[in-house]
Design a binder for these strands. Structure first.
Length: 430
RNA sequence: GGAGACGUGGCCGAGUGGUCGAAGGCACACCCCUGCUAAGGGUGCAGGCGGGAAACCGCCUCGAGGGUUCGAAUCCCUUCGUCUCCGCCA
């Protein structure tokens, strides 16, 4: 959420930021609403202050036994009560209206973010690794002979419909190994704190991280009102929801492995083959809570943490700076990692690392007391995949595929696979 | 699921109708003393919103929502959460 004071102080900058996102100016509408709101608050509060004074006098009259004066004041207050209540209600309604409007406006990009309309305007920052030269036509993951026995979309469709998968045997174990490997790496080498969270959350949490109120149709909600998290960003970030934390506890660096649930509304027909885009998938997610000063540096650090996983697995990738038109709702700057998928002969997103600034913190009311005391300030939040497990599985399978239909597996995974080094053509680990 | 207790400031914890936004302690900030792996003394210190150049003033907030009352942290109702006991259960 945006700071109304910042908009008031510099409406041009606000509108310019929106324009970079391809949005029409909004400051005039916002400031008009804000002015109206403040006028009403003022009027209501003055009336209320008057009533409070009268009430005190009433008490004083009662105390000294002046019944006539007591009754006179009592009647006076009684008369104005409904009117003041109405004024307060009006002021509150406008306050809510402004708040509701602000909740729907996306974060503004940093100056360093490249301008652009869609993913074609994203800017490659760096590239790591060389796609392996193959002397056979590479297959997509679901067509690799060694993968087929352990990746069953038909059975999943029977169980749950489209965009689900049943993994079994060697493939299932590689999938699990990947999640464990990523967690261990972030915990042991990157110093993140392992954090396990619920996958069902209250609406307030979805509002806090920005999935609501605008993107409710992208997620699932239970009859009881809980939401299934589309990413552990929601739970990890909201761990500080409503809190005033000690500055000494920052930065808080968390990593969690969770199921993620997405309705994929609006992506009908896209990536329908294979397990690239599922309603349910696993992700190892990183979240950092920092102070205002260290947020941007943390973004670099987090990006490197994600890159380190791909490098350890020997998967070629490129790091891309998302342009203004391709960034998510809450981000001020986002770096995507795209992994090489030989079966698709292209790089595909496998991680997205975003610096959110205080945008989510305002929604969550999450603050810290600055060093040396003083007024609380909003924390800054960051989130990044480290990595999407299902997509990493795809990448490992496609990049490791051999001419004979087996798959060579990255050395760092061997200890997690009981020493196995390949997925055989028959789908078993060996 | 049944019964009971509780939910107060960054934290702990008093407070049962007005002078309470709230004692005391801890933490924190500044100052003094002292001197070294520590202590003592003093002062300050809830948050949000609105007004004001500022000093400062006002409004709201004692889990949340509603009610009673001239007046509610305090009484009533609803609701959420936590804890304890019982039941059940991975």
């Amino acid at each position: 959420m945006h700071d109304i004071r910042a908009i008031r102080e510099n409406p041009e900058a606000f509108d310019a930021g929106l324009a970079r996102r391809g949005l029409a100016p909004m400051s005039a509408e916002i400031l008009a609403l804000d002015a109206d709101r403040r006028a009403r608050i003022n009027a209501a509060e003055e009336a209320k202050a008057e009533q409070n004074r009268a009430s005190k006098e009433t008490g004083a009259a009662k105390a000294r036994g002046d019944e006539a004066e007591f009754e006179r004041l009592r009647a006076l207050i009684g008369d104005s009560k409904a009117q003041i209540a109405a004024m307060m209600a009006e002021a509150e309604a406008l306050d809510r209206q402004l708040n509701d409007l602000l909740m729907t406006i996306p974060n503004l990009p940093l100056d360093s973010v490249p301008d652009g309309e869609d993913e074609t305007d994203n800017v490659e920052i760096r590239r790591w690794g060389e796609p392996r030269a193959l002397d056979f036509p590479p297959l997509e993951h679901f067509d690799i002979p060694g993968v087929k026995p352990g990746m069953d979309f038909a059975t999943a469709a029977k169980l749950s419909g489209s965009r689900f998968v049943v993994l079994s045997g060697g493939v299932a174990r590689i999938h699990r190994a990947l999640a464990q490997f990523m967690l261990d790496m972030h915990i042991d080498k990157h110093g993140l704190t392992e954090t396990w969270t619920p996958v069902l959350v209250l609406s307030d949490m979805m509002l806090g991280t920005g999935q609501l109120p605008k993107f409710g149709e992208d997620s699932y909600q239970t009859r009881e009102g809980w939401w299934l998290i589309p990413t552990a960003e929601v739970t990890l970030t909201n761990t500080v929801h409503g809190d005033l934390v000690e500055h000494a506890t920052l930065p808080r660096r968390m990593v969690g492995h969770s199921q993620c649930f997405r309705s994929e509304a609006g992506s009908a027909g896209r990536d329908t083959s294979g397990m690239l885009r599922q309603h349910q998938f696993e992700k190892v997610e990183m979240v950092s809570i920092t102070d205002a000063e260290n947020g941007l540096a943390e973004h670099e650090r987090m990006t490197k943490c994600a890159e380190a996983v791909l490098e350890a697995l020997g998967l070629p990738y490129r790091t891309v700076a998302l342009c203004t038109g391709d960034m998510g709702f809450g981000a001020r700057i986002t770096h995507d990692l795209e992994v090489w998928l030989p079966g698709q002969d292209t790089y595909r997103e496998i991680s997205s690392v975003s610096y959110v600034g205080d945008f989510q913190a305002r929604r969550m009311n999450a603050r810290y007391r600055p060093e040396g005391g003083g007024k609380p300030e909003f924390v800054h939040t960051l989130n990044g995949s480290g990595l999407a497990v299902g997509r990493t599985l795809i990448a490992v399978l496609e990049n490791g595929q051999q001419a004979d239909g087996s798959v060579e597996l990255p050395a760092v995974l061997h200890p997690y696979l009981g020493g196995a080094i390949r997925l055989g053509r028959d789908g078993s680990l060996a």
